[in-house]
Amino acid sequence: MYKFNKIRLMMGTILLTSILIVAGCSESNTEEKKDESEQNNEVTVDSQMGEVTLPSDAEQIIAPFHEDTLLALGVTPVAKWAIGNQLQNYLEQDLKDIPKIEWNMPVEQVLKHQPDLIILEHGIDSYEGSYEDYKKIAPTFVMKEETTNSWRKQLEVFGEILNKDDKATKVLNQYNDKVKEAKEQLSQTVGNETVAVIWATGNQFFLFEENRHSAEVLYSELGVTPPELVKNLGDAQTKWNPISLEKLSELKADHVFILAEEGEQGITTLENSSVWQSTPAAENGNVYILNDQSNWTNRGLIASQETIKDVLEYLGE
C-alpha cells in the first residue's frame, strides 16, 4: 500500500511538472509573440539626427512641404504646409479639407494637431522649434539632405518608415512607365525643338535652370532640349535671381511655358514688349500660359505627373 501511494505521488509530481513546463512554454511563446508584434509596429532607420526608432503604424502624420510623397503612398497627413494663404494647389484635390500648418512649424500649431509622427527636412534650423521640441510632441524623423532633395529617395524612405515599401515600388514603376510613354510621344511631336519655362510673379521673371524643381522632369526625364540661354544658367542655386526683360530677348526657344496667376502684371508687360514679341516662341504663337505654377515649383511624384500632363497638353500633339 505504501509502495502504491509512493508511485502515485511520483506520477502526480511528474504530471504537475509537465503542466508547469507546458504552461511556461505557452507563456514564453505568448511573450515572444507580443514582443514580435510590438517590434512589427516600429521601425529603426537612419536619419540626419542619427538612428531613430519610429512607429510604422502612425496615422496622425505631419510632413510639411512633402505631402506629395505621403499622398503618393496613399497616406493623408493631419495638417498641410502653407505660407499664409499660399498652398500647394496641385494637391488641393486631396487636401482641401485638411487644416493648414505654417511652413516654419510653430510648436503650438504642431501640438494642436496631435501628431504621432513628424517628418522634417534636413535644414532643421529653418523651423521655429528645435528637434528636441518636436521630439517631446511625437517621434520625429529628420531627413538627410539627399532625401530632402530627391523625391525618389523620399518614396523609398517614407515607404520604409510607414511599412509601405511595396506601394512605393509600385507607384514608382507606374511613374517610370508614364515617363517612357511621354518621352516617346514628345520625340515624335517636338523632336529637337527647344523649350523653356519662365515663372512670372509681380513684374519679375524667373527662368528655370535645367534642374530647377520640375524642370528637371522636362529636361532630364522627358529628354526635351533646353535653349542655350537655359544651358548657360548652370545648376540651380538656393537663391533664385530674376532675369531682365532685355536678357529674355536672348531666349531663342521654340516653345515657352509661362507660369503666372491670372491677371499677373508680368503677362501684360510681355504682351506690350517688342523685345519679347520678337523672340521665336512669341513670333510663332508657341507661348503657353499656365495659371497654376505649384506643381512646377515643387518636386514629388504627383508634381512630376502633373508637369508631364501639362507638357503633353501643349506639346504632345
Rank of each mutant, 00 (worst) to 15 (best):
S274Y: 02
A303Q: 08
I62S: 14
G300F: 07
Q39H: 15
L120W: 00
N41F: 13
Q109C: 07
V142L: 02
L186G: 05
Q305Y: 10
K178I: 04
F205N: 00
E145N: 12
E221D: 06
A23Q: 11
Q39I: 12
V107N: 13
I7R: 05
H66N: 08
A303C: 07
V22R: 11
E228C: 00
H113K: 14
I289F: 02
F158R: 08
L259R: 01
S274I: 03
I118L: 15
T269W: 06
D310L: 08
I124N: 06
G129V: 10
Y134P: 00
M143N: 02
T69L: 11
V179D: 01
T147G: 01
G129I: 07
K247I: 11
E121T: 15
S28D: 05
Y288P: 01
A260C: 03
N192L: 00
E317G: 15
K144R: 14
Q265R: 10
E160K: 15
D177C: 13
S126Q: 03
G129S: 09
A168R: 00
N176Q: 15
W103F: 06
S294A: 12
D116G: 07
I137W: 06
P115Q: 02
G50I: 02
A82N: 13
K144C: 13
N295F: 04
N291T: 12
L301V: 13
Q114P: 01
C25V: 15
A200V: 01
L95E: 03
W103L: 07
L20F: 15
D125Y: 12
I61E: 05
D292A: 01
D235I: 12
K239V: 11
L218H: 09
M49E: 03
L207T: 01
N29Q: 12
T69K: 11
E42G: 13
I161N: 03
G74M: 13
T76G: 11
Q293V: 05
T169F: 04
E264I: 06
D46E: 15
K180Q: 15
Y175K: 09
L207H: 00
E27L: 12
F205Q: 02
L95H: 11
I83C: 11
K80F: 06
T53I: 05
P280I: 01
S249T: 15
N89F: 00
E132L: 07
E246S: 10
V197N: 03
P227S: 01
E210V: 04
F208D: 12
I83G: 01
E283D: 10
D166F: 05
Q88R: 08
I21E: 14
V22C: 03
L70Y: 05
E51G: 07
V275C: 11
Q93L: 13
E121L: 12
Q60Y: 15
V217R: 05
G84K: 05
I289S: 01
A58R: 01
W103T: 02
K100C: 07
T148Q: 12
L233P: 03
T53L: 00
S244E: 04
F205L: 01
S278W: 04
Y2G: 04
W240Q: 00
V142Q: 14
W276N: 03
A281I: 00
S220F: 09
N192H: 13
D235P: 12
N85C: 10
L54T: 13
E209W: 02
E128R: 13
E102T: 09
S220K: 02
V190Y: 05
W81C: 08
H213G: 13
S26E: 09
